[in-house]
């Protein structure tokens, strides 16, 4: 590769990283936080067997897991204006990513709740705690520990999926790269460059996952002290 290519790559580094820091990461963090709230609520409703809400949760999960993310983005951003609902690109992306991720994570959390031994809940009752108290203090923390690796995977997948938001004009990292390619025609080095930046983000998250697992895992550690 000629010196010119390296120049393009070096020049564009900040131009790609910056939208990564100001759009990709905020989009991921906000949408994932909302997704976790949705996931826990949907999982709890199913675990507790709340009538009606349970069916609604199943329906929501069925729809959002069964349709492509890209289609969901298009329906919300390009489709809803037909019925008079206009949402700006970034909030539209937050909405769709939250709902989509929430559906996947709800299943992860539900499976983890079901893996907690039934005796934990019974022991809570027997020391006088209510269902909700026992869920909040005993069952849910254990389930979240079990779910943590899967949820982390899901988060890492989502960071990469945010590139799809470029399709609804969100100016995140991938769109920034596309714009530079359109100007410089250096497709190969620039797409590799943005790929490496995604790799960097994923690697940081993987490291954080390991730290998190160690912290959360204190109670499963076998070694004495």
């Amino acid at each position: 590769m000629s010196g010119h290519v390296w120049e393009v790559v070096a020049d564009s580094f900040m131009k790609i990283l910056l939208p990564g820091l100001t759009i990709t990461i905020p989009l991921t963090v906000i949408a994932f936080s909302i997704a976790m709230a949705i996931a826990v609520a949907m999982a709890m409703v199913q675990f507790a067997g709340v009538p009606v809400l349970k069916q609604l949760a199943r329906f929501y999960i069925w729809v959002f897991r069964g349709t492509p993310l890209l289609v969901q983005l298009f329906v919300v951003f390009y489709g809803l204006p037909n019925v008079g609902i206009l949402i700006d690109p970034f909030p539209a992306a937050v909405l769709v990513f939250s709902l989509n991720e929430g559906a996947y994570c709800a299943e992860i959390v539900r499976a983890a709740l079901e893996a907690v031994p039934a005796g934990q809940l019974e022991a809570g009752y027997c020391v006088g705690m209510s269902y909700l108290q026992t869920m909040r203090r005993i069952v849910l923390p254990q389930a979240m520990r079990t779910a943590f690796p899967s949820l982390s995977n899901s988060l890492i997948a989502m960071v990469k999926d945010t590139s799809l938001a470029s399709n609804i004009t969100v100016a995140e990292m991938f769109m920034a790269t596309q714009r530079i390619v359109a100007r410089t025609y250096e497709a190969l080095p620039l797409y590799i460059e943005v790929g490496l930046i995604y790799l960097l983000f994923s690697t940081v998250l993987t490291k954080l996952q390991q730290v998190g697992e160690r912290k959360l895992g204190a109670y499963t550690a076998k070694e004495g002290r």
């Binding site: 934990q120 022991a123 027997c126 005993i138 254990q142």
Partner: peptide, 12 residues
């Protein structure tokens, strides 16, 4: 109070 066959201590 109840003491279970398999203890059922709060694992966390």
């Amino acid at each position: 109070a109840f003491v279970f066959q398999n203890y059922n201590l709060f694992l966390n």
